[in-house]
Write a protein that binds this DNA or RNA. Structure first.
Lengths: 213, 213
DNA sequence: CCTAACTAATCAACTGGTTAGTTAATTATA
DNA sequence: TATAATTAACTAACCAGTTGATTAGTTAGG
C-alpha cells in the first residue's frame, strides 16, 4: 500500500528540514545560519527543528552525516565496477568530480569543516570521512604492491585531488567574475567544466605515480 | 628619533587590534568572532574597533588584506633569487609551505574564505589574491614557452598545490587525533612535517610537468 | 460503526542572553 | 587650547532554545 499524502508526516518533515538545512548551512556556514530562517524556509514552526534534532549542533551533525554518507555510497558503488588500481583511481576522481559539480553544497560544507579541523563536529568528522579516504588509500596501496604506482603518500595525494576539485567548485562564481574584468593574460579557467578538470587531474595523477622516486 | 612609549598611540592600537583579530577570525571564523571578545583580548574599549575600522566587515577586510599582502611579499621576495622556472616553482611551493606552517592562521583564513567564494569580502578577495596566482601562472607559462614544462593548467595546478598545503596545515590536529585511535593501516601522515610534504609535492609537480600530453 | 482516550506532530508566544553598532562625555597630548 | 584617542553606558535587533497549549491521527471499547 502506498503512503497516502498526509497533513502530518514526521519523516517528510524531518527530510524537509534536513534538505533546507543542507542548503542553508552550505550557503551561510554554521554560525550564520539562523534556525528562525530555516523554519521559515521549511514552512514549519521553529520548535519542530528542536523537536526532531534536539539542538542546532544535532541538526548540523545529521546534515553532515547524510551528505558524507551519500558521496561515499556513490563513490563506492562506482568503484566495484573496476578491478585494476589505475581504473579505480580514475573512477574515484571522475565520480567525485561529477558529484561535487552537481551537488555543490558538498565542497562547500566539506571545506568549511576542514578549514577548521572540524570546529563544529570534530568527533564525528573523521569517522564519517574515514571510508572515503580509506578507499583512496587502499587503491594507492594495492597499486604500489602490484607495481603500477610508485612513491605514494595517500594523505597528501588525497588532499591534492580533493583540494583542487572542491576549490574549483566553490570558487567558480569568483573565477567567472574575475575573468570578466581581469586582464586576459590571467586565465582563471572560468570556462572549464568539471569533466575536463577531472580528465586533467586523472592524467596528471598517472604521470605522478608512474615512475619510481 | 625612536618612538617613545606612549599611553596613546593610534598606530599601536590599530596594530594591536589587527593582530588579535587575525587570531580570533582564524580560530572562530567571521560570524562567530565577537567584537566584545576582541576588545577584551586587546585590553581596549570596543568602541576603538569601530573608531579605527568603521565596522566588523571593515576590520575583516583589513585583516585579509594584511595577511594576503604579507604572504605575497614573502613569496615574491624569495622568487627573485631564481631565474629558471623549475627553481622558481620549487621556491614558490617551499616558501608557501614554510610560511603556512609557521603562520597557520593563513590557511585557516584562506580556506574559510575560498570555501564560500569570498562570502564576506568577494569584491576584494581575488584582487588581493591576484598577485600570488599571477606569479604562479607566469612561472608555468614561461616554463612552457621554454619547453621545460608541458600541458600546464595554472588554475587547477594552483589549487592542487595550495589545496594540499593548506589542508595539511588545517587538518593537522584532526589527523593527529585520528592516528591515535584509528587502526594502524590507515596512515594520516600525522608525523609528517611541512618540509617533507613540500619536498613531496615539488617532486610530484616535476613529474606532472615533465612529459608532453 | 461510533466515539472516547491516547499519542504524535505542530504551533504561537515567550525568555534570557548576545550581538554589532552608537553616543556623548572624558582624557591625554601636541 | 584644539584635537585625537579613549571610555562607559546604551540601544535595537537577533538568536538558540523552552513552554504550554492545540490539533490531527490512531486505537480500543461498547
Amino acid at each position: 500500500m502506498s503512503k497516502k499524502i498526509q497533513k502530518r508526516d514526521a519523516e517528510a518533515s524531518k527530510a524537509l528540514i534536513i534538505s533546507n538545512a543542507i542548503q542553508l548551512f552550505s550557503k551561510k556556514g554554521y554560525a550564520s545560519s539562523s534556525m528562525d530562517e530555516l523554519a521559515k524556509l521549511c514552512g514549519l514552526n521553529k520548535a519542530m527543528v528542536f523537536y526532531y534534532f534536539k539542538n542546532k549542533k544535532g541538526l548540523y551533525e545529521a546534515v553532515m552525516t547524510q551528505v558524507l554518507e551519500e558521496i561515499q555510497q556513490v563513490v563506492l558503488e562506482e568503484n566495484v565496477k573496476y578491478t585494476k588500481p589505475i581504473e579505480e583511481l580514475e573512477s574515484f576522481i571522475r565520480t567525485y568530480a561529477k558529484y561535487a559539480c552537481t551537488h555543490p553544497y558538498l565542497p562547500s560544507l566539506l571545506l568549511k569543516e576542514l578549514s577548521d579541523s572540524g570546529a563544529v563536529v570534530p568527533e564525528m568528522l573523521f569517522g564519517a570521512m574515514r571510508q572515503l579516504f580509506a578507499l583512496f588509500s587502499d587503491i594507492l596501496n594495492r597499486g604500489e604492491e602490484k607495481g603500477c604506482f610508485h612513491d605514494t603518500n595517500p594523505m597528501v595525494l588525497y588532499f591534492m585531488v580533493l583540494g583542487a576539485l572542491n576549490l574549483m567548485v566553490t570558487t567558480k562564481p569568483l573565477r567567472v567574475a574575475a575573468s570578466q574584468k581581469e586582464d586576459i593574460v590571467l586565465d582563471t579557467c572560468a570556462a572549464c567544466d568539471m569533466t575536463e578538470i577531472a580528465d586533467y587531474i586523472v592524467d596528471k595523477m598517472k604521470k605522478m605515480l608512474k615512475e619510481p622516486k
